[in-house]
């Protein structure tokens, strides 16, 4: 299955992936309209260090701990993509505690949010990959 991978050798720490993510999940067509005066809650987040940066988003594990831990069945695997049903999520954050990658975060309305490879928004394919200026984020089969 194709997944989003980040090569830290080429990650510049520019944070553009976060903005492209927030834009994609806003389902707006104009980025300025979507993000002007907005505090973004991206589903991919940059980890910054002294000389190393890399963006982290859901690995879409084959045997995901978050799905196992979810007490309401809000998390499920659809064609390999782990998706969250925000109608079922009660905001217990068990999945956030379970995820070894720190890839799940609280969303804007108390429920969780996570990368769904842009399959559930208007972009259709990972928009962080499109926005990465140095091809550090790739969407490929490994």
């Amino acid at each position: 299955m194709k997944r989003v991978y980040v090569n830290e050798e080429w990650c510049l720490g520019c944070h553009l992936c976060e903005y492209y993510c927030a834009f994609a999940n806003s389902n707006e067509k104009d980025m300025a309209k979507a993000l002007k005066n907005v505090i973004i809650h991206p589903r991919i987040q940059l980890e910054e260090g002294d000389n190393i940066n890399f963006a982290v988003s859901c690995r879409h594990c084959d045997d995901p701990l978050c799905v196992k831990g979810c007490i309401t069945g809000a998390l499920s695997i659809n064609d390999g993509v782990i998706t969250a049903d925000t109608n079922k999520c009660i905001g217990c954050y068990t999945c956030i505690l379970c995820c070894p990658y720190g890839a799940i975060s609280p969303g804007e309305h108390g429920v969780i949010q996570k990368c769904e490879l842009c399959t559930t928004n208007i972009k259709g394919s990972p928009h962080c990959v499109v926005g990465c200026p140095n091809s550090a984020i790739v969407f490929e089969e490994r």
Binding site: G13, C14, H15, L16
Partner: peptide
């Protein structure tokens, strides 16, 4: 300024 979303990529780069 209507388009700037304060993402600060210009500053970082």
């Amino acid at each position: 300024m209507d388009k700037c979303i304060n993402c600060r990529v210009c500053e970082r780069q």
